[in-house]
Amino acid sequence: MNKQVKVKLKTTIQQPNEQPEIYELWVTGTYIEKGESAYLKYEEVQDDKNIKTIVKMGETEALILRSGGINMRLPLVKETEQTGSYESEYGVLMVKTMTRKIMFEKNKQDGQFIVQYDLNVSGQSVGEYTLEFHYMEESQ
């Protein structure tokens, strides 16, 4: 099952002893269900570069794949450290995630997926990230 959706992504990055950085993005995307898995696919433009994002959403694990202007593979499993990768102009960096919280709720017309994790890049903590995806079927 595929359907066109409006996606609101709110990203909160919390560094120790600092005010949180909050970013919001509204895009049109596709919600896909294949078997037991649910996916959100969308494209965004950042610094004049197209970035395709696929988010595999689950109750206890998730995977965020980005390609194009940014290439990233971010596996997220609740209460488990995972290793992913982030490709930059300087080469491929190994990243580690420690997922604190995952919540996935879906209804007929809409849903939300929230994941909270600590992100380490090359052994250095770069903060606690909270991603809140809210999606809603576009009215015909």
Rank of each mutant, 00 (worst) to 15 (best):
Y135P: 09
Y129T: 12
E137L: 02
E33Q: 15
K101P: 04
L74T: 06
G58R: 03
V27G: 04
T53M: 08
V115Q: 07
Q109P: 01
K106L: 04
Q112N: 15
T83H: 13
E24S: 07
Y129S: 07
M94Q: 14
V121C: 14
A38P: 01
A62L: 04
F113N: 13
K52E: 04
G111S: 06
G35R: 01
V5T: 00
T53N: 11
T99P: 12
S85M: 09
F104T: 04
I114R: 14
E44A: 10
L9R: 03
E18W: 00
M136F: 00
I22P: 02
F133P: 09
N120W: 06
M57C: 15
W26P: 00
M136A: 09
M1R: 05
Y117D: 06
L119A: 08
I13R: 09
S88M: 03
T97E: 03
E89D: 09
M57A: 15
Y135Q: 04
Y135V: 10
E137W: 00
T28L: 02
V92A: 11
M103E: 10
M57H: 10
L9I: 15
P20D: 01
E137V: 01
T28D: 00
P16A: 08
K78T: 10
G127F: 00
I70V: 12
T12L: 10
E138P: 00
M98R: 09
V115H: 05
E33R: 12
N2M: 08
Y39P: 14
Q124H: 10
M72H: 09
Q19H: 04
F104H: 14
E18D: 07
D110I: 02
K34I: 03
L9A: 13
Y135K: 03
V92I: 15
T12A: 07
E81V: 09
V95C: 11
E24P: 05
F104K: 10
T11L: 12
V95F: 02
E36N: 08
M136R: 01
D47L: 14
D118S: 04
Q4M: 05
E79Q: 12
K106V: 01
I51F: 10
M57P: 15
Q140M: 04
V45R: 08
S122K: 02
